[in-house]
């Protein structure tokens, strides 16, 4: 009914954090406080991945809700809000499905960051061997 709103709310918070982190890293690079020899992915870049996942999911799911007539372009924008019993069902769905969606996306992103860090730290392999074999 409005499960995408949970991910959208998380996306707003993460976007704000990502912008702040980006500024912090920019200042650090200007002050030359970043260690050049350490190979790692900046946190702001990883947070950008999470914002894309969250915004992408929220926007495309919002479209699905418009498709099913659950989101309308007039007040109160959510058809479930016009009726107290429907609103209760909607809040329950947000607390269960919506929270699970946001949690799973965050878990997937966290695993992705760990894998990406491991790939970056891995020594480069000779890819020509594959073509010979």
């Amino acid at each position: 009914m409005a499960c995408f709103l949970v991910s959208a709310a998380e996306a707003v918070v993460v976007t704000a954090v990502e912008k702040a982190e980006e500024k912090k890293e920019f200042r650090a690079s200007e002050d030359n406080t970043i260690k050049e020899d350490v190979v790692s992915i900046p946190l702001s870049r990883k947070l950008k991945w999470l914002t894309y996942l969250l915004w992408g999911g929220a926007v495309l799911l919002a479209f699905e809700h418009i498709w099913h007539g659950e989101v309308v372009p007039w007040f109160p924008f959510l058809t479930a809000m016009t009726n107290p019993s429907d609103a209760q069902v909607m809040f329950h769905e947000m607390a269960t499905v919506g929270v699970c969606m946001a949690l799973l996306i965050t878990v997937v992103w966290f695993v992705m960051c760990k894998v990406a860090d491991a790939i970056v730290k891995r020594p480069a392999t000779d890819t020509t061997q594959d073509t010979v074999a």
């Binding site: 499960c3 995408f4 991910s7 991945w49 894309y52 996942l53 969250l54 915004w55 992408g56 999911g57 929220a58 926007v59 495309l60 799911l61 499905v97 699970c100 969606m101 799973l104 996306i105 997937v108």
Partner: peptide, 15 residues
């Protein structure tokens, strides 16, 4: 990221 984000969310919906 756009498509994977939506896929993960629809997967939860499907479950």
């Amino acid at each position: 990221f756009l498509y994977w984000g939506a896929s993960i969310m629809w997967l939860v919906d499907a479950i």
